[in-house]
Design a protein around this nucleic acid. Structure first.
Length: 783
DNA sequence: CAGTGAGCGAGCTTCCGCTTGACTT
């Protein structure tokens, strides 16, 4: 038994630290928080100064038991959880549960897992900081109160039947997406004309080189643009002035969780959860440092490694020592930035994680590389026939520096400002250049783009809302609750005008462009909009974008000992709870109704609204003699924007398409999306098939395809016993009736040879020893 | 798997932040 027990949060970290500390120390992990508020009755005694009621969750019992035993048998326990609010609280909970004295137990901290940092930490133990612990308790209790008081309000006041939820973080995340959507819906695009002139100039060897210059300004109307072109007829163009300026670009800071998610999204197209899954793999296999961090700091040992790697591969000139500072005030910096553990490994063998690893490697290396040096040239060109001038700009890379390996991506790649500036031919003042043609092109203003998962994380981080460990789960939650969905949107064709001045002649043409197309963007659902409007109306303080920042300031005051935690909670709770009570009493049940018009056939009102099963259109009223007609909205439609005409279109379903193999084929939209029905069987329509326009010829192949797919999945059938052996994504399994049974490992290889008797035996076996369920239903207290 | 849409009421849902496996049809 080791003399010392060190407890950290992560098992991968425990392994590394144990190697560093040697045999006198046993290092164990507690796997994050080991206690949480009870679920019943909020887990808070509100009338008793918000006294929290903590319990060890079921899945933590085992580890707590193990730690208790180890703590008893060891001379000294060292609490080495992360140095932030949550880490301090975990240490305190460990004291409480393991029976350690918070007044004497050694608390150590380090921000990086390196030998010097850990040895230094062991030399300088401190005691628990109860102020910091209280700040965490206040944070935890406030979040529980907000979540567990607001959610039930939604259950009572929304007409929808989902398991709705609200919280300090998720509700504001949804609000951002809802407001962005409305900005886009109400955006008025205006056009203007941009003038570009294409010239040629001779270089000193007499070769003709072409270059481009920009017009004086954008013209608001086609008339103004045309007038300008007319004024240029017959003009000569003379270089009036040349300015050459040096410029430089600097590399971005090494990755934090949020910037890693953004870059992986922009450059690799990963969702935030995929990025985190792969990063976790890399961390667990020792290839990168901890992946949930808000720090841009690099350890001294890492800096030395990086310097060596740069000098070896690129030479001394490419290295530049840099120390980055966190922009964000909410950062708690318990860890290092995300970086490779060994800079020598520019890549790795594992194909799943390689691309993410290489991204991290490049970003880390680049962050310590020299600036890129540029030379910008701006030439002004006089037009002889008017007082305007044209501007040609060029850029020459003098020294690539960090650009040799890495350039940060941008969210607005498709912006119409061309970012790649070309090289200008050598020009001289007073030189006359030849105009090939001049174009005035119509350009439209665009609304802000919809959020991607990653750009939403970026925004949340800017607002100080959420933490590195919760960005990915939050994005998942708001999609799981159907407040938000990730999808593509097709663009629409738009015509734009072009006027060309060539050989003193102006021609007018038109071209089309695709606008408004979106890929993998976050769209609010009707539910998300309705819930957001409701929360905004009744709980504006919690929904305020500055709410988290404001209470974070107060948590900081608690951590500094300037404020008492339960007083702070009370100041929040009094007005908040009053709002909850008022809302429960006064607010109407929300239906999200919108009147679209009158049904031309019956004269009855046509209404878009939220039904129990989602957004729908209703013709007529429930109290009418004749039953109202209903139709479900398409996935891409919304209550807020659907037109009367589109609404009436929806009543064209179900459609009868005609006969196939002697049976009728109909299409409709059901609980699980659009489907075709044929011979009492159902066939889901393919994504690209629209049930309103799909034709009979497309349904036949669908039916045949499903038949063969079923054949391929089937290994064996025992008709009489209704037993099937099927192939699934996790290997072969047995199906009897509607139930599935797992085939024991030792028989998987010869699943095709299983006999009826064997199959029956397996079924009986599984029935006798049912597989463990993930979460057994909690017993409700009877008293 | 492929319906429904009003209202009643029982019994259920729910937060954020710290960490990994156990488990899938």
């Amino acid at each position: 038994m080791a003399k010392n027990l060190v407890i950290v949060e992560s098992p991968a970290k425990a392994k590394t630290i144990e190697k560093i500390l040697g045999s006198d120390f046993e290092v164990k992990s507690c796997f994050g928080h080991i206690r949480d508020l009870e679920k019943d009755d909020m887990g808070i005694d509100i009338n008793n100064n918000f006294k929290p009621k903590y319990a060890v969750p079921e899945d933590k019992e085992k580890i707590v038991k193990e730690l208790k035993k180890l703590a008893k048998d060891t001379d000294e326990v060292w609490l080495a959880t992360d140095e932030d609010r949550e880490g301090e609280a975990i240490s305190w909970h460990l004291c409480e549960v393991l029976g350690l004295d918070p007044q004497t137990t050694k608390r150590i901290v380090f921000h990086e897992i390196t030998k010097p940092a850990i040895e230094r930490a062991v030399q300088q133990p401190r005691l628990l900081d109860m102020n910091l612990v209280n700040a965490q308790q206040a944070r935890r209790i406030l979040d529980r109160i907000v979540g567990f008081e607001l959610s039930p309000v939604l259950w009572r006041k929304m007409s929808m039947r989902n398991s709705l939820s609200a919280g300090r973080v998720q509700s504001v995340a949804v609000r951002l997406i809802v407001e962005r959507e409305r900005e886009i819906n109400t955006f008025n695009s205006v056009s203007s004309f941009r003038v570009e002139a294409f010239f040629t100039a001779k270089d000193n060897q007499g070769r003709s080189l072409s270059f481009k210059a920009e017009g004086p300004s954008r013209f608001k109307t086609a008339e103004d643009a045309e007038k300008f072109l007319q004024q240029c007829i017959g003009a000569t163009y003379t270089v009036k002035d040349i300015q050459v300026k040096p410029a430089k670009k600097s590399p971005a800071a090494p990755f934090t969780t949020s910037t890693l998610q953004q870059e992986a999204s922009r450059k690799l197209g990963y969702s935030v959860s995929k990025t985190m899954l792969l990063a976790q793999k890399l961390y667990e296999s020792g290839k990168i440092t901890y992946m949930r961090t808000d720090s841009v700091n690099l350890s001294d040992t890492a800096l030395t490694d990086i310097k060596q790697a740069i000098e070896k591969s690129y030479g001394q000139r490419y290295h530049q020592h840099r120390k980055f500072k966190n922009k964000n005030e909410s950062a708690q910096e318990a860890h290092e930035a995300i970086r490779p553990t060994y800079m020598d490994n520019a890549t790795i063998d594992d194909s799943d994680t390689r691309r993410l690893y290489e991204l991290i490697w490049k970003r880390t290396i680049a962050s310590q590389m020299a600036d890129a040096e540029l030379e910008k040239t701006i030439a002004k060109i006089d037009i002889s026939t008017n007082h305007e001038e044209l501007t040609a700009s060029g850029e020459v890379l003098k020294f690539d520096g960090f650009l040799k390996i890495y350039m940060e991506g941008r969210d607005d790649e498709d912006s119409d400002e061309e970012d790649q500036e070309g090289v200008l031919p050598p020009l001289a003042v007073k030189q006359v250049v030849d105009l090939k043609e001049m174009k005035a092109t119509e350009r439209f203003t665009r609304p802000a783009p919809r959020y991607t998962e990653a750009s939403l994380v970026k925004k949340l981080e800017e607002l100080g809302i959420g933490r590195p460990s919760t960005y990915a789960p939050t994005i998942t939650t708001i999609q799981k609750r159907s407040y938000v969905e990730k999808r593509d949107k097709e663009g629409i064709k738009r015509e734009f005008r072009i006027m060309t001045l060539k050989a003193d002649n102006i021609t007018k043409t038109a071209d089309t462009e695709n606008t408004g197309a979106e890929k993998s963007k976050l769209f609010p659902t009707d539910l998300g909009m309705i819930v957001t409007d409701f929360l905004n109306q009744y709980f504006d303080s919690v929904m305020d974008y500055g709410f988290t920042a404001k209470i974070e300031e107060e948590f900081d005051e608690i951590a500094n000992g300037k404020k008492v935690w339960n007083k702070m909670l009370n100041e929040f709770y009094e007005p908040f709870h009053q709002d909850v009570a008022n809302t429960l009493e006064k607010a109407e049940r929300v239906k999200g109704e919108r009147l679209l018009g009158e049904d031309p056939e019956s004269g009855k009102p046509v209404v878009a609204r939220m039904g129990r099963y989602g957004p729908m259109i209703q013709i007529g009223k429930a109290e009418d003699e004749e039953k109202p007609r209903f139709a479900k909205l398409k996935a891409t439609q919304s209550i807020e924007t659907i037109s009367m005409a589109d609404a009436m279109e929806l009543f064209r379903l179900p459609r009868n398409l005609g006969m196939f193999e002697g049976q009728e084929v109909t299409v409709n939209i059901g609980r699980f999306g659009p489907y075709a029905q044929h011979d009492k069987k159902f066939y889901s329509l393919k994504k690209e098939m629209d049930p309103y326009t799909v034709e009979l010829e497309e349904i036949g192949p669908l039916i045949v395809e499903k038949r063969t797919a079923k054949d391929e999945r089937t290994i064996k059938v025992f008709e009489k016993e209704k037993i099937q052996i099927l192939k699934g994504p996790y290997g072969p399994y047995i199906k009897q009736g509607l139930k599935n049974y797992k085939i024991p490992k030792e028989r998987i290889d010869h699943a095709a040879d299983i006999t009826v008797e064997e199959a029956k035996a397996i079924i009986e076996d599984v029935k006798a020893n049912p597989p463990k369920k993930k979460a057994p239903p909690r017993k409700k207290k009877t008293e």
